[in-house]
Design a protein around this nucleic acid. Structure first.
Lengths: 196, 196, 196, 196
DNA sequence: CATGAATGAGCCTTCATTCAT
DNA sequence: TATGAATGAAGGCTCATTCAT
């Protein structure tokens, strides 16, 4: 009858944090359940009380990572003002976010790779892309309707914009000396805005 | 007429082919040397006559994959005509190539992930990006000098162009139903060309 | 009263015991970790909870064997009486010990061979010999000072004595039909005592 | 019909020399047939034309090594003079031989270890010891009969002498800094001669 | 005779997962 | 709930041996 507090949610969170860190550092396959346990200050056996398998843990981390990335995009919706300004603002904000996420990049690409192999992962990735387009396209559509943008195909334009952002991230990741991510994303955004 | 023709080059190629396939299908870490041997019609032990370790094999495959991707880009250099036309031609050709490479995409992203972890892989990736920029930027520069393009920053524009291509590939990979890669790459190219 | 008693020392001992047996029977190189596990009633993987590598296990076994051999010698120090009597007593006791150690002889010689190749092993062996001399020489010196022995070079005499013992062990090991170890060690001891 | 010279004996010898060297350097188990082939300037496959298995090669090397050691002892028989002098001469000659054989010591102890496990090896070792005693005992017996030595048990005395020699070799091998082999063998011989 | 090429069998080591406490 | 202990299942790599040429 003692009021044992349910620590289960706290523990789950604790494990996810630890796993995220270890996955990012060592890579998903190289990360051992033991490592994650150690990072979480728990024994590896304890992890199995909260996650049935390593794969289940991977799935949760993956969802978590993409949810985190989407959170940034969702602000697009909430802001007001001229569409071009909102897109510029979005780019600016993205730049800041990406700097902070740099350590998660290897993990991101691992998930990309996984997404092309495991159907479970594929779903998450597909949703991520769809959500992204679904957020960006209406904004561009709105710009067209308001006469702020030319009458382009909103969906296609949104995809191109997203592609430019993702692609810049990738080039920066592998050639940080050659690609100034901040300048490049803003530059790419301007280039595209000129045609819109 | 020598009694024993040197099969070593042939075998090496045979193994690389098999490894490429198995890596693409199962993933680099999940791929067992035994699988690769089976795919190549050789015993596991035989692989070690041609590659010292699994890592060595991975390295060769990685270099091979990026070399293959660069080969497409290099045609940019060789063609003549208006710069915009050449870029359009390049996009068209890329589209065809990418369709053929679809099965290699998971592997590509795995290598991207690896590139952020292992320095050996990083080097290959860095060179790949650098080479890409080095091929594209002078072309744009040429366009500027010939008065075919506006006086943009050639390097930055090249990076944006490359980013758009890479990014489109990625979005298509994860949402093929939503993203029509062929149309999208050509569309993105047009969009950028308008601003150049 | 703790719910889980620490079995780690017990297991370690259990594994050492098993390894000692398997090494002695099959030889260090031929002994498989699996064999040792089976002998210990444990799985192969469990061994690695207690010993990082097979080499580490070998090292412990080696040290254990030589420590065991030295234990016999150390009684030399503790006993009282005439030096010659103490040496005779030592020989008698050694004989009993050696009979019991017979099954470990192959292992002993393997360690001797290893001692000439691996520096880690060499150290253990060197210490063993040094310790042996260090125990025997002072005793002889004492005998000299007490006038019980002639004024020989104590260290050299100790080495000769040790050599005779080691050598008899070896000849007995390979020609047990021809060499009566018990009689021979006592005989050799008498022969040397006469000159001392 | 061309008078192809039979190189088979030459090749066999060449291989034995190579194997002896490689076994001594790397150890019998660690020595690979490939290593031996390389040392002999032959392909490893060629070794199998001359030796059915690695074990067969080991056997030959073992016999060769012990035969070589016995050759030294056999001079005992041939010399003339006072028995004590002949024994001293033998010790002197042995010392020189042992210095030359130092690199073979690890191999020697490996064979000792093997001799306690494999019956084939055991035979060779047993013969070696027996031969040694058979050479030494009659000499001592002769000394007794000539009145040069006391009426000891010739066989036992021979064994003790052999043991002292073998044992000194062993102690020197492991503690060369502490044991001056040359001086020690001569010293041990003198000590024993005093009692004989 | 000689060997380049190939492999079956094996061994060390790792790790996700289970379970008794 | 937590964990120390244990393990089945793998996987990379090695090597003695075989064989076609």
């Amino acid at each position: 009858m003692s009021p044992k507090p349910d620590v289960s949610e706290e523990r789950t969170e604790q494990i996810i944090e630890a796993a995220l860190k270890v996955f990012a550092e060592r890579g998903v396959e190289k990360a051992r359940m033991e490592d994650i346990g150690a990072e979480a200050g728990l024994s590896k056996a304890t992890l199995y009380l909260y996650f049935k398998t390593k794969d289940a843990l991977i799935g949760v981390i993956m969802r978590r990572l993409f949810a985190y990335m989407l959170r940034g995009f969702q602000t697009l919706d909430a802001t007001e003002g001229l569409v071009k300004e909102r897109l510029r603002g979005f780019a600016t904000q993205l730049v800041a976010e990406l700097h902070r996420m740099r350590s998660l990049l290897p993990l991101l690409y691992e998930f990309y790779a996984m997404g092309l192999r495991k159907s479970a992962a594929r779903e998450v990735l597909g949703e991520f892309v769809a959500e992204f387009i679904t957020l960006l396209a209406p904004l561009i559509q709105q710009g067209i309707e308001r006469g702020e943008l030319r009458a382009v195909d909103a969906e296609k334009a949104a995809i191109t914009l997203g592609a430019m952002l993702e692609g810049t991230l990738l080039l920066w990741a592998f050639a940080p000396d050659r690609v100034d991510m901040e300048a490049q994303i803003l530059y790419g955004m301007e280039l595209l805005l000129e045609s819109l």
